[in-house]
Amino acid sequence: MARLKLKEHLINRDWCKGCNICVHFCPKHVLELDSEEKVVAVRPEDCICCRLCELRCPDLAIEVITEQSDHDATSTSEDAVNTSEQDD
């Protein structure tokens, strides 16, 4: 089955307010705040395209751009969503 493959994190620095929500809840610790308190993708190779950063961003400042890939990834985005948004 085709997996989602990351193309890039589209970050709108003018809209980002550095609230840290995306950084804290990223299951793979891909994101960090820089010296200006704006989010940057420091480990994009670890991204599993679960889009939790994009979904939770109050400022609509981050977008995960993906492309379809036929390579099987080790973990799927659905797995990540299930583990990080636990229905407890």
């Binding site: 003018d14 809209w15 307010k17 550095g18 609230c19 840290n20 929500i21 109050p58």
Partner: peptide, 8 residues
């Protein structure tokens, strides 16, 4: 945008 709500 950016919207007027506080950070977070």
């Amino acid at each position: 945008f950016p919207q007027m709500w506080c950070p977070g």
